[in-house]
Simulated assay, not measured.
Amino acid sequence: MPILTVKVSQPASPSLNKAISEMLLERTTRILRKKRELTAIVIDYVPPENWIVGGATLAAQGKNSFYFDIKVVDGTNTKDEKAQYIAECFEAFGELLGPLHEESYIYVQEVSADAYGFGGATQEFRYIRSKS
Rank of each mutant, 00 (worst) to 15 (best):
Q84T: 14
M1Q: 04
R126V: 07
Y107R: 14
D74H: 13
E49S: 15
N77T: 12
G55D: 04
K131Q: 14
S15Q: 13
F125Y: 11
L16Y: 05
R36S: 12
I86E: 08
T57S: 15
L58G: 01
Q84E: 12
S15F: 03
F66I: 03
G98D: 03
E110A: 00
T39H: 07
L100N: 07
S21D: 00
R126Y: 04
E110C: 01
E88V: 04
R126N: 13
F66M: 05
Y105T: 06
Q123N: 09
I41N: 01
Q123R: 01
D74I: 10
N17L: 11
E102P: 12
L100V: 07
P99M: 02
I106H: 04
A56C: 12
G94S: 08
I20Y: 05
D44T: 13
A19F: 01
M23R: 07
Y67A: 09
K7T: 08
Y127T: 07
G117A: 12
A56N: 13
S9P: 06
Y45L: 05
P2K: 01
D69P: 00
K82L: 11
S132A: 10
E37V: 01
A113N: 06
F118H: 13
P11K: 11
G54N: 02
A56H: 12
I41S: 03
F90L: 14
L32W: 05
L97C: 03
L96W: 13
K71R: 15
A121M: 15
K35Y: 02
A19I: 02
P48W: 05
K18L: 07
A12H: 04
E81S: 14
I31S: 06
S13Q: 00
